[in-house]
């Protein structure tokens, strides 16, 4: 995978680069701010950009803004936003469009999971940090339709929201693909959502549903 890394902390950037290189990916550019990121992507046409949300010059949501620009100019580019903690910036809507991920930095410690998430995003899939999903689901209100889901169904819903495929969910929960499919169908029916074929459409539906509650 041809990858650009945008991260102002040299330490983290170099560590991440080495990790990816060790896993057999090619780092085509390493940049430290949003502007260089846009330039580097335009020049090197990578498959994936790993972007820190906090970058100079403003240290605010520069990474998130850059991600939106990249999405417009390069629809096929996979974008993985990283941040130190869960940000209030509305990045969630990007998740639904596919080819986008949002993870906390310490997910790197689970190297295989992390690399899998990167690969999924580069292929046009999604990755939403479990922490974010937990917050979305944890946000309860009265007469919550989520109450109608079984515990297992809620587990499946969370994994769906993280952007995992049925196969991924099945592996994670040690279930058969058929069982997962049944769960998914039930969940979508209970929440009144259309059951799409494409994974990222499904994520969009789930996340939008959770976010709009």
């Amino acid at each position: 995978m041809r990858t650009v890394i945008a991260e102002d902390s040299v330490l983290f950037r170099e560590g991440l680069a080495r990790l990816l290189e060790d896993a057999g990916h090619e780092i085509v550019a390493r940049v430290g701010d949003a502007e260089s990121l846009l330039a580097a992507v335009a020049k090197t046409r990578p498959e994936l950009a790993v972007v820190d949300i906090h970058m100079p010059p403003h240290r605010g949501a520069d990474g998130a803004h850059a991600a939106r620009h990249l999405r417009q100019d390069h629809p096929d580019l996979g974008i993985m936003l990283l941040s130190q903690h869960v940000e209030p910036y509305p990045t969630v809507e990007l998740v639904g469009e596919g080819g986008f991920g949002y993870l906390l930095k310490d997910r790197v410690f689970d190297v295989d999971e992390f690399l899998e998430a990167l690969r999924r995003v580069a292929r046009g899939g999604s990755a939403l940090d479990p922490e974010v999903v937990a917050r979305l689901i944890g946000h309860r209100r009265r007469e919550d339709p989520l109450e109608r889901l079984t515990a297992r169904e809620r587990e499946v819903l969370a994994l769906m929201a993280e952007g995992r495929t049925n196969r991924g969910i099945a592996l994670r929960l040690v279930l058969t693909d058929r069982t997962v499919e049944t769960h998914v169908t039930n969940i979508m029916a209970k929440l009144g959502l259309a059951d799409g074929v494409e994974d990222h459409r499904r994520v969009l539906a789930v996340v939008a549903y959770l976010g709009s509650r």
């Binding site: 902390s9 983290f12 991440l16 990790l19 903690h85 930095k105 310490d106 790197v108 190297v111």
Partner: peptide, 20 residues
């Protein structure tokens, strides 16, 4: 955020790298 936390994340990553 910018200091210790960042360093600890990098540290974790470096140890994982070494492990791998």
């Amino acid at each position: 955020h910018d200091g210790a936390q960042q360093r600890l994340v990098s540290l974790g990553m470096a140890i994982r790298l070494a492990q791998r």
